[in-house]
Simulated assay, not measured.
Amino acid sequence: MKELSRIVEAYDQIADTSQKAALATVVKVQGSSYRRAGARMLMTDDGRWTGAISGGCLEGDALRKARQAILLNQPSVVTYDTMTDENASRLGVGLGCNGIIDVLIEPIDYLREQMDLMRVFKNFLKDRKRAAIATVFNVEESMQEGIGQRFVTDSQGNALSNITVPLLKDQVHADILPALAKGQPLNKVYAVEKGRVEVSIEILHPSIELIIFGGGYDAAPVVKLGDTLGWQVSVTDDCIAHTGSKRFPGACQVLHAPRENVVEQLSITPYTYTVLMSHNYAYDIAVLPQLLATDVQYIGILGPKKRYLKMLHELEQKGIILSEKDQERIHSPVGLDIGAETPDEIALSIISEIQAVHQRSKGGLLKEKKGFIHERS
């Protein structure tokens, strides 16, 4: 989401100028690649780009293709086949991932004429709710004008479409809603009057919203790392000395609130993750039941296991018995086991665990993982 924000910002800088630009989007990946479908980069005719579609191997060639697309004001799909070193050498790229990557390149002027995709992105960044974008990228020769046509659906099911290929719109609509509900991308081939059409259905997910309870000195590196990843980070404490906004420049909110009803003053969404790290047992035991009463999916608690067991015992005495689901969403001690000692290392451990939970990963060593690094849709 941070990369998408940077692309929108770069677009706004040239929107009212005569500068030309094109948007490149990875629409399909077969085999291995550095980036997955949905990766984007905005390229301007002066040779600059924002975002990335690979680890730096394809960007130069994509820029050359973008200049041609801008000149013709027509979208095109470029296929980078690096399954063999011979193919990679012929393409003039140093990609060693052994994959096939399809990249859709669209001039910005053409995009404006067909669908204001940047406005779609802006609305998504503002609303912070899941959305789906279905993009036509592979058609038979008689339907070349269909490349780049889209069907967009927001979290409420509201649709925007410029699909004109006969029979395609209804078929895409039937598939995009289930994909949006599951939050899973999809590539599918459809049969229409003039042949076959391939469509990439991409799901836009809001970034993580991290709430830190406790504004001590070790909260600062957690805020910094979260902000670096593009997360929306909030800090709250009932100690006025811990809630100076200058202490957490990367936080989107610093809230001074009493512990007894602090959660009422915060917004909890499906993308909210929380960490209790106040170093104050009385504060944490006051906030934890409030979080358990919400649907927040992750509750990290800083401190040793013994401290957490003490909290459980005290909650039981108050008649609060944790369900199996509650036990699954509580992570105490918080963080991955990376041998962290310093506040910066502990912050890395905490942030890494949240990222792993968010992506449904076990957070182990990649060299011990069986199968692909990324799950395949």
Rank of each mutant, 00 (worst) to 15 (best):
L4H: 04
L4N: 04
R6Q: 07
I7E: 03
V8G: 06
E9T: 02
A15G: 03
K20T: 02
A24Q: 03
A24N: 09
V27A: 09
V29R: 09
S32N: 12
S33K: 04
L42C: 03
G47Y: 04
G51C: 08
G55P: 07
G60S: 11
G60L: 01
A62N: 09
L63F: 05
A66T: 08
L71N: 02
L71Q: 07
Q74H: 12
P75V: 08
S76G: 14
T79H: 07
T84H: 08
T84Q: 08
G94K: 03
L95P: 08
N98F: 08
G99H: 06
I108D: 11
R112W: 15
E113S: 13
E113V: 06
Q114V: 15
D116G: 14
V120L: 15
F124D: 10
K129L: 06
I133C: 14
N138Y: 00
E141G: 14
M143T: 02
E145R: 13
I147S: 05
R150D: 05
T153N: 07
T153E: 14
S155E: 04
N158L: 10
S161V: 11
I163Y: 12
V165H: 13
V172R: 09
I176K: 15
K182E: 14
V189Y: 02
V189G: 02
V192I: 12
G195I: 11
V199D: 06
L204F: 12
L204H: 08
P206E: 01
P206G: 00
I208M: 14
I212E: 00
G214W: 02
G215N: 11
G216E: 10
V223M: 10
K224N: 13
D227I: 01
T228S: 13
L229W: 08
W231P: 04
D237G: 05
H242N: 15
T243Y: 05
A251T: 01
Q253G: 03
H256P: 05
R259N: 07
V262Q: 03
V262S: 10
Q265G: 06
T274Q: 08
T274K: 07
S278D: 05
N280F: 09
Y281K: 03
I285L: 15
P289C: 01
Q290E: 01
L292I: 00
V296T: 13
Y298T: 06
G300Q: 05
G303F: 03
G303I: 01
K305N: 02
K306H: 10
E314N: 03
L315D: 00
Q317H: 00
K318G: 08
I320P: 12
I320F: 14
I321P: 06
K325P: 00
D326K: 03
Q327S: 10
I330V: 09
P333E: 04
G335F: 02
L336I: 02
E341H: 06
E353L: 12
I354H: 04
G363C: 02
G363A: 04
G364S: 05
G364E: 05
K369Q: 15
K370S: 08
E375K: 13
E375I: 07
R376W: 03
